[in-house]
Design a protein around this nucleic acid. Structure first.
Lengths: 226, 226
DNA sequence: TGGTCTTGGATTGGATCCAATCATGGAGTA
DNA sequence: TACTCCATGATTGGATCCAATCCAAGACCA
């Protein structure tokens, strides 16, 4: 019980924030699958905190939609149906062009170089995990210069909601589809370099739309076999 | 073991939920102005609870953007600048046509009759408080038949964010502007009756866009004089 | 034998207590 | 007079304890 043996958990930020980030990451990385039950005490012990900050963290995650909270019953990692996932993509289709328009004018040359690097890395890798990771970095970087109150956070949350399924259906893309995705990424960088915000916005919209339609052809990703 | 995977039906009634709703309503009704400090103990006493559920409620409200939480300092009702308010309206401009498209096919005749009633009530009242209240009911009813995972809640949150400012700039609309707003409402009902989802979506988009432009002509609403 | 009731354990929800942190104001000094 | 430093009170953050609720297994009875 003496705290000398147990190193006090890192002090930056408050505990609830740390716990929330930890759970978010665990979900994103696939360590916590959709449908998994989240027991407060278990989480508390895992993060070296008491249950109070855990409950606050779960409240935040519920508001983000990542966790489903049932009074007097418990918390589960949210599970999406195909229809719900399509809804998230429809929403992204509307919001990300807007967010990109906010960010595009402030992207530096270095940002654009990095975007090109990431696009190239995506077309050369065969590892799905790596692809998904780089894909996320690519898009988030393209939005990173937007100075927004909530739109940026909102889009990131939408990505988080579908992250567990992204890997699953990325495997299913055939060579042609992958080629088209890479072309779209490249087109987007070109448009951004030319200062063609409208063109970049249209490209990202089409990109998300195409991904959504790919998704809807693979309902097997969402079968609740577990 | 597998019984942990599916969440049982929800049951409402915990304190954190009540507190969150209470604060939300207080902000919406203007009892809590943007910038107001929220002291945990004060709130706890007001709702007859302890500080623990209050802290959970504040976490939720922070995730919604209604409350700004500063570690080790406290909580304040979020205050928007003009630019941030315009961002919310830009976001609504993209999302509400989509949400309306989800809802429109499921609106009943009774719903449409009620919408017409509300539109008429808006054009006949001179009381600003009444107008704002009915306006919200009108739009929320038009979305109420959408069966969405998050889009419906998301739009409602966006409305909540700007609710404190809506009353302020509604006063500033001249007779012409009000007339146009009423026409738009009526046009929307007509399009919905005809089953013209696309037309209704365009109408609501134009309606929000017009409101946003009206808003940007009245920066004085956002001067931090208080 | 089948259904209902009860009881125990497990888990969440809430209250109280203690620790950590921050703002405020006053004393002391150049 | 103005600036620094420190002490003190107020407020938030976290831990522990207790109450309420739910689920499941087994007892009881028709």
């Amino acid at each position: 019980m003496t705290s000398d043996l147990q190193a006090p958990a890192s002090r930056d930020g408050n505990a609830a924030m740390r716990v929330a980030s930890g759970i978010r990451d665990a979900i994103a990385h696939g360590d916590l699958a959709p449908g998994s039950r989240l027991r407060q005490e278990e989480i508390a012990e895992r993060f070296g905190a008491s249950r109070v900050p855990v409950r606050e963290a779960l409240k935040s995650l519920e508001a983000e939609g990542l966790v489903t909270l049932v009074p007097n019953a418990g918390a589960w990692v949210s599970r999406l149906t195909l229809a719900e996932c399509e809804e998230v993509y429809q929403t992204r289709e509307r919001l990300e062009p807007l967010l990109l328009a906010h960010s595009a004018p402030h992207l530096s040359e270095a940002d654009l170089d990095r975007l090109e690097e990431l696009a190239a890395a995506m077309s050369s890798t065969d590892d799905v995990g790596e692809f998904v990771r780089v894909d996320r970095e690519f898009h988030m970087l393209s939005y990173s210069r937007a100075e927004t109150l909530m739109l940026g956070d909102l889009v990131e949350r939408l990505w988080n909601l579908t992250q567990p399924y992204r890997r699953a259906y990325t495997v299913l893309a055939d060579a042609d589809t992958r080629r088209i995705m890479h072309d779209e990424h490249h087109l987007m960088v070109v448009a951004l370099r030319e200062g063609d915000v409208e063109g970049a916005a249209r490209t990202i919209e089409g990109h998300i739309r195409r991904t959504r339609r790919l998704l809807s052809r693979h309902p097997e990703v969402f079968t609740t076999s577990g």
